[in-house]
Simulated scan of single mutants.
Amino acid sequence: MNSPIRVTVWGENYHERSERDRDAMAERYPEGMHGAIAAGLTRVLGDRVEVRTATQDQPEHGLTDEVLDSTDVITWWGHATHGDVDDAVVEKVHQRVLGGMGILVLHSAHFSKIFKKLMGTTCSLQWRNAADTELVWTVSPSHPIAQGVPHPIVIDEQEMYGEYFDIPQPDEQVFLSTFTGGEVFRSGCCYRRGKGRVFYFSPGDQDYPVYHHPDIQRVLANAVRWAAPEDNADFVAPAVVDMPAPRFDRGNA
Rank of each mutant, 00 (worst) to 15 (best):
F185H: 13
I114F: 10
D171I: 03
A227W: 05
R225I: 05
P229M: 11
Y211P: 02
V174M: 00
D242Y: 09
F175Y: 15
F199R: 00
L104T: 03
G196K: 03
S177W: 00
A38V: 04
T55A: 08
G188P: 12
E66G: 00
V9T: 08
V136R: 11
P168M: 14
R128D: 09
E12Y: 09
Y164V: 10
S108K: 11
L176N: 02
M25K: 03
V139K: 05
M160Q: 15
E66P: 00
G194A: 07
V224W: 08
N222K: 07
E31P: 00
R225G: 01
T81W: 05
D57Q: 10
E183A: 15
K92V: 01
T53F: 04
V149Y: 15
R28K: 13
D57H: 11
R225Q: 08
S3D: 00
A227C: 13
V210L: 05
R6A: 13
E157K: 11
F185Q: 06
E230F: 05
Q206L: 04
S140L: 02
T75H: 04
F201A: 10
G40M: 08
V139N: 01
F201S: 11
N129Q: 09
Y208M: 03
R247N: 11
I114N: 06
P238K: 10
R247I: 11
D234F: 01
T42S: 00
E60S: 00
H107C: 08
W127P: 01
N252K: 13
V44F: 00
E50V: 14
E159Y: 04
E91G: 06
A54H: 06
R128I: 04
K116S: 12
E159W: 07
L118H: 13
V51M: 05
P150C: 13
Y164M: 02
D205V: 10
V49E: 01
R6S: 11
A38I: 04
L220A: 09
S202N: 12
H110W: 08
S124C: 01
R192D: 06
T8R: 04
F179S: 02
F235M: 12
A80E: 07
P246D: 00
D86G: 01
G40P: 00
D57W: 06
I216G: 04
L125K: 00
T180S: 14
V73S: 05
M160T: 15
T71W: 02
A146T: 13
M101T: 10
G78P: 06
V224S: 09
R250V: 15
A227P: 07
G181L: 12
P144D: 06
Q206C: 09
D242N: 15
